[in-house]
Design a protein around this nucleic acid. Structure first.
Ligand code: FES
Ligand code: FES
Lengths: 143, 143
DNA sequence: AATTTAAAGGATAAATTTATCTTTTATTTT
DNA sequence: AAAATAAAAGATAAATTTATCCTTTAAATT
């Protein structure tokens, strides 16, 4: 469904979103541990998120990463789009170059309904929402 | 969503399912062309499907592949399961080792609904259904 | 200013997926 | 029986994704 890079990105962002006001900064090591992702690979992914202004990064002692205000409000959709592109939201299930009503594949109608449901869910679920669910003990970040 | 190998498998099977009674056999070349898939790679995938008894293969002159009766009735679900495994139907969206109600990730409830919808659709859509939709001109196999 | 800390950047490597090519085996036709 | 045909099998290669490592840059502390 999503690439590993994308899952690492989501889990890193959600972890940062769970941190309380005033101590929202975390270092790479801490993030990678919390997100269950390999450190160096995570670093690379975080830089992408920084470039997208979803994260702030601070160098030097006591440096690290913070989720930006924008990042906190960001829907899950955006993370997936940034890391994996939007083929999962737009592409044909069976590999036709274009998914369209005009030239549909043999599962288009059934598949589109599901894909749109997924898209809607991803667009309306923010990292903040996910973090809250974790902070209230309803769900979990790690296995 | 699905791997290329999986899309090639589905499109090859659907193509074979579109062939009319009495001339249901096709060679690798014809199949690969119809399914828009690379020939040698397709050959490898077809062998997997033969091993699963979803296809029959005949060597020698006028040889080729035919969809088996079992294959014709097979739900799309089975092709995906054989080629990609069932992580798409069972796995956690965010990478937790187990997807479960007891230890859910932060999108579990929302995601599970969608995933189950997908699973249901894939279980109830047979290759025959897809082939019929193509044969009646409602949908298309190639771009 | 010098030292330490931690991210940025870039090079490299491992693993997996996708793709191709060559030889062997089975089958049909001559 | 010999030749031709087409899939099976296995080796190899290219491309992509995942992962690690090393040097540079920026910032805080001493
Ligand atoms: S054309 Fe295949 S999903 Fe729309
Ligand atoms: S635990 Fe993540 S989808 Fe079920």
């Amino acid at each position: 469904m999503f690439s590993k890079a994308c899952k690492y990105a989501i889990n890193s962002m959600v972890f940062l979103a769970t941190l309380p006001e005033g101590q929202e900064r975390a270092g790479l090591k801490e993030i990678a541990f919390a997100a269950n992702s390999p450190e160096a690979f995570t670093a690379k992914i975080l830089r992408t998120l920084v470039r997208e202004n979803l994260l702030l990064s601070i160098k030097g002692p006591n440096g690290g990463f913070e989720i930006s205000d924008e990042g906190r409000k960001t829907p899950l959709y955006r993370i997936v789009q940034v890391i994996d592109g939007d083929s999962i939201f737009k592409g044909c299930a069976l590999g036709l170059q274009e998914c369209s009503e005009k030239h549909p594949c043999s599962v288009h109608h059934k598949f589109k309904a599901i894909r749109d449901h997924l898209t809607g869910m991803m667009m309306t679920t923010t990292l903040q929402d996910m973090a809250l669910s974790i902070n209230t003990g309803v769900s979990f970040l790690k296995t």
